[in-house]
Design a protein around this nucleic acid. Sequence first.
DNA 1: GTCTATACACAGATAGAC
DNA 2: GTCTATCTGTGTATAGAC
Lengths: 199, 199
Amino acid sequence: MEQTTRSKIIGAADALFYEHGLRSVSVDAIAERAGVTKRTLYYHFESKDALIAAYLAARDRPTVERYRDWLGDDGRPLPDRIVAMFAALASFAERPKWRGCGFTRAAVELAGQPGHPAVVMAADHKARFENWLAGELANGGVADAAAVGRQVMILLEGAIALMLVHRDTSYAVAAGEAAAALVSSALPETSTRAVEAVS
Amino acid sequence: MEQTTRSKIIGAADALFYEHGLRSVSVDAIAERAGVTKRTLYYHFESKDALIAAYLAARDRPTVERYRDWLGDDGRPLPDRIVAMFAALASFAERPKWRGCGFTRAAVELAGQPGHPAVVMAADHKARFENWLAGELANGGVADAAAVGRQVMILLEGAIALMLVHRDTSYAVAAGEAAAALVSSALPETSTRAVEAVS
DNA sequence: GTCTATACACAGATAGAC
DNA sequence: GTCTATCTGTGTATAGAC
């Protein structure tokens, strides 16, 4: 079955690329971890760049699903759900193998090659994620959901970067409080009180 | 003068490391750009890793000074100064050669090697920057300046990451508005009303 | 589709003359 | 302090058998 071999290779690429980065991981290492030879790998993927693109493509859906779970269902007050999402991220980042966002890291490592497929995929992933976030806020009754969604997105991204640099997951909690304050301010009734409560 | 040769090498390293990243730039390329041979480079620096560390060390002060300029002097209302800082960042990021924060990018690219000197330097730089930011907020009368400073720091970091991914500098403006809102909420009532009266 | 074996370029780092 | 020349490992990718 070609499917099995291909997915084994992508699984090995995911483990190594995410842990060590793109350029520092060799095709040999991926092939070895996947339990195939390099020649087999090149039968399934045209080049290392193609494998990088496949690695990110496989990460797209699980990443979005994870945040969807963290945000939870409609029902609770929106600021609480936002805080919960950031708290879950903080908990997730406690894991020793956590290394930040694979998409952002790929875009950063390939910042010198703006046309690279992986960079394009990262931008697309982030745009769709921001769009989803804005939609959730709009459903929750937030005024100007696009603008607030973008601010929450920025807080998410910044928290991930600083958690990676400092290995301190409290940044996600701090970001969650800020996000909840901004969201509360954009909700119809409780705006002023909620912001002051956080500060 | 040894100083001249050494600084020429660091200058070449800065240009290439910042533009293309760490691993994708060879020592040969840096030596060539500096106008020296590889052997001379290795006379001044023990290894490529040492050169990377020197590259970041040289970037530390100019980076902080730039933000200090952008925030401006005491006198204007603090939220206005915050907005101005983010606006200046947006303008700075318009330049074609802009590639985000060299410290964060180094930490991201070396995320697989937590003990690497460059990672340690990046964390130290970010910690001192956050400290400076909190100090400025405290001087401006912000309550709980440490917590708000951290939130502003997260917004800064997130805006830089997303500007790099999307090549859209409006993220810094959006982050600046969020930061100003959070700062305003942490100011005494009198200061907040003074801001509104001026604008 | 998967293997063994290998081509070819380039990486980081060093030897030793001057 | 700077040079020419080189060592040695590793990188991506390919040839051709089975």
